[in-house]
Structures are given as structure tokens and as C-alpha cells.
Design a protein around this nucleic acid. Structure first.
Lengths: 247, 247
DNA sequence: GGTGTATACCTTACACCGTAAGGTCGTCGT
DNA sequence: ACGACGACCTTACGGTGTAAGGTATACACC
């Protein structure tokens, strides 16, 4: 039991063996540097000084590897949920951090909406997130609603972010910034300047303010669930939406 | 120029030639049936009775083809923007329709966030959408904000939709519905039932109600831009008219 | 008629992908 | 000493997007 580590290179002991965390970090670095669809098992292997199939000793497949990258994101996000601050403030920070991934890891952000919480690590995060909703005073139904609202917006805004920076998986050069052509697209050319990268922070903050305002009002309105005002059931909105089972 | 069509099969005139629209429709059908990552040029070609490389005569590449599928979505969505209804109601119907794509084409929905508006068709839609914001009374800055908010949520909710139905591009079987284990994940197991497919319509409507409430209040507050209340500016327009979306 | 040109499609080929199957070491417990 | 095992390698298969160039049909014009 007192055996030493003895991980010295015995002539062909190349390195200390890989592990999931190190592979996942290398994969994330590779995506950050080269883009998501330049992540291949072969390229990742060679970045680690190893053959591609070696990775399969640590991961069941590429999906499994992506889940591990999601875990890295979770570890980057979760700390802002922990603390003794006001629960609503912690939630706000959490969703800010989710969208922040789109800024710190723009080429890898897609992993977040593409994969689900299925690892123990990410499920623990999910648990903590929903617990914070509870601490803020929301019951289960309200938590579900506001979680979807805030998370949906955070993800959507993150994708818009990498879209505006043209860092999507398929970075087609898109010379077509002909939004500036006011002849054909007057409204687009008027609005798009407001959507430039420099303004995205403020636009995101505005959206989150709107959502968290509603959450705060919902809490102030008392313990019971509270709907936003629904003035009139306009026939136009109910006509072609929903699940039309078309065709 | 007065030549007749004369597109009769001259012994080896196989069929009337392909065109972008027909290829795109076939691609969408293939995705709907087989999933997004089962769409390959070869499979699409054979679905059309043609070799894969024939498609490259009509499309610059696969990305171009995906943009054409986005155009199909746009054509499915845009009609709800047209009409003489109240602009806000048309906008609401539009975002409902965007998320509706996740229901009518769950396996193809990813194309929507993955590609940008770059074709003339989709740019025309973008233009009409922003024009409707203008008609509703928003200036350019407000349009940018609320567009991002509503579109982000619609996209995010759509992805959650296909996530809950496990119809993502990578449909890993995920037996891990161990959310029901209240030991380890009490809050998750409490909230997740509310996020089941049967409730997603109501949850989405709730989110959209919240967003459009804010938009309506912003319009009622006058012509100038109005921030969501930071401290306690809750001048409630909260009427409880809507249907009881409880639980 | 012949001749040229354009369109629509096909053939071949290349480099790359994820991964199934099985082999080969070096290290360690006994 | 020896067997087991973990960590990694080798090979191979069926797929992918698409570059390059070939071919057959249709039409315009002389």
C-alpha cells in the first residue's frame, strides 16, 4: 500500500495516461481555436500526442465527449449560483453566465444547446439551478415557466451573439452585409445597426431585465401563480400557430 | 423566343429538370423522415433519382441547400405577418409560428438557428418582420431589443421542445430519465414534470405573454423608449383575463 | 444539313470522418 | 515467474462533402 506513484518514464512510458478531464479540455481548446466542425477524433488525438482510437478508451463516442465539454461549461457557470446573495441576483448571474459562454467560447457554444443535461455533473448543476428558483420563492410550476423563459432567451441570445460575430459552425464568409441598402430593405437597414456587436451586451441586459422584472412582480404579487395580462385573444394569433397538423 | 416548351421525353429525357425549390423540398422531407444528419448529398440525390453531384449544379454546396430549407420555413412563417390585423398580434403570431416549426419539423428545426438570413427570400421576411415592429409603434432601437428578446426565446423554446422530444440531431437514447429519483435531485424531480411535452404549449404561451406584455406596456408608456423598471416601477396592467394556464 | 454553345447530369477521385475489431505493449499483483 | 489488465495502437469499413472533368441532350443559327 505504500507503493510510490512510480510514474517515471520507463523507456516507453510516454506520458502519464490521459483522463477524461484532460481530453475534454484539449477538445475545448481545439474547438476554440479551430471551430466545432474541425474537432475530429483524429485531430484531437494528435493534439494529445495519441492515436484517435485511444480516446475511445475514455469516452464511449463523440457524443460522450461533447457531454464532457458541456460539463466544463457547467463548471464555468455554476459558481455564480453559489453564495449567500439574493437568490434572484444569483439566478440573473447564472443566465448571464450561460450567455457569457457564447462570448468566451463562441465556436463551442453550440455544444450547450445541442446536448442535454445527462451527466451527473450537469444534473447536479440543473438541480442547483432549480433549487435557487425555489429559494427565490417560486413553486415548481413557476420555476418551470421562468426557467424556460430565461434559459430560452439566454440560449437564443447566445446564438445570436455568435451569429453576429459570424462564428457559426459554418462560417460562410457572407459578404452579404447589404443590409446597408436602404432601397430594398429600409427597415432592416435601420434596425441592424442597433444589433451590432457593440450593442449586444445592452440588448441582452435589456431582455434579461424584462424577464426578471416579470419574475419580481410575480413574487411580489403573492405566493400564487400569476399570469401576465392577456388582453384579448386575438383570432389572428390562434389561427395558424400551435400545432396545425398541416399537410 | 416563340419556341414552345417542348419538354417531352426524347427517349432519354429522364424527367423535367430539377430546380432549387424541388430539391429543397425533397431535402426537407428527407430530414423530417430520417433526421438532420441523415441528409447527405448522396441520399438526397438518390431520393431525387439523380447522382449526388447533380445537386451541385443547382446549389453551391450543402450550406446553400440548408439556406434554401430556411427559405421554406420562411415561406411557412411569413403569411402570419401579412394582413390587416393589429401589428402586435401579427408579431405574436409570427413568433408562435417560428416556434411552431419545432413542432411541424422537429428534426429540421436546427436549420433555423444554424443559418442566417442571407437569401433574398429570408431577407425579405426579415424586412417585413421589422416593418411590422415599426407598424406596431417601435422605433429602431426598441425593435432591435424586442426582436432579440422574442426571437431568442422562440428559438430557445423551439430547441427545448425538440430536446424534450429527444429529437435532436444526435438522438442518444438517454435512458437517463432518472429525474424521478427524488433522493439525489429533489428539485429537478419536482420541476421536470411541469416541463413535459404536454405542458410545453402553455409554458411557451406564458413566456410569450410575458414578453408581449412588456412590449405593450412599453408602447403605452409613450413614444419614447422605456426601460423595464429596475427598482419597483411596477405599474401593473395586470388583469387576469386570460385562460387559466394554471399548472 | 452542319456546327457551336449551354444546360443538366454523370463519373471518378480525394481527403476526411466516426468507430468496430482486434493486437501489442508496459506495469503490477500475486 | 506469470497472468491479468489498462492504455494505447493498427487496420479497416462504410460513410461524408466536393473538386475536376466528362457526356448527352437541346437549341440557335448559318
Amino acid at each position: 500500500m505504500s507503493s510510490p506513484k512510480s510514474t517515471f518514464p520507463g523507456r516507453r512510458r510516454r506520458r502519464e495516461p490521459l483522463d477524461r478531464a484532460r481530453i475534454a479540455r484539449a477538445a475545448l481548446e481545439l474547438i476554440d481555436a479551430e471551430g466545432l466542425d474541425n474537432l475530429s477524433m483524429r485531430r484531437l488525438g494528435s493534439a494529445l500526442g495519441v492515436e484517435a482510437m485511444a480516446i475511445y478508451h475514455h469516452f464511449g463516442g463523440k457524443g460522450d465527449l461533447l457531454d464532457a465539454i458541456l460539463d466544463l461549461f457547467v463548471e464555468e457557470i455554476e459558481p455564480v449560483l453559489i453564495g449567500d446573495g439574493e437568490p434572484l441576483a444569483r439566478l440573473r448571474a447564472c443566465f448571464d453566465a450561460i450567455r457569457g459562454i457564447a462570448i468566451t467560447h463562441p465556436r463551442a457554444f453550440w455544444v450547450l444547446p445541442a446536448r442535454r443535461f445527462r451527466t451527473p455533473r450537469s444534473l447536479a448543476f440543473y438541480e442547483r439551478l432549480l433549487r435557487t428558483f425555489h429559494e427565490a420563492g417560486f413553486d415548481a410550476a413557476q420555476s418551470a415557466r421562468y426557467f424556460r423563459l430565461a434559459a430560452g432567451f439566454a440560449i437564443g441570445a447566445g446564438m445570436a451573439e455568435i451569429g453576429s460575430r459570424a462564428l457559426q459552425p459554418d462560417p460562410t464568409p457572407i459578404v452579404l452585409e447589404d443590409f446597408s441598402d436602404p432601397e430594398h430593405f429600409p427597415y432592416v437597414s435601420r434596425v441592424v445597426p442597433h444589433l451590432r456587436v457593440a450593442n449586444l451586451d445592452k440588448i441582452f441586459a435589456f431582455g434579461m431585465d424584462t424577464i426578471f422584472d416579470a419574475m419580481r412582480r410575480s413574487l411580489e404579487a403573492g405566493g400564487k401563480a400569476r399570469q401576465p395580462a392577456r388582453p384579448k385573444q386575438s383570432r389572428a394569433s390562434a389561427r395558424r400557430t400551435g400545432r396545425p397538423a398541416r399537410k
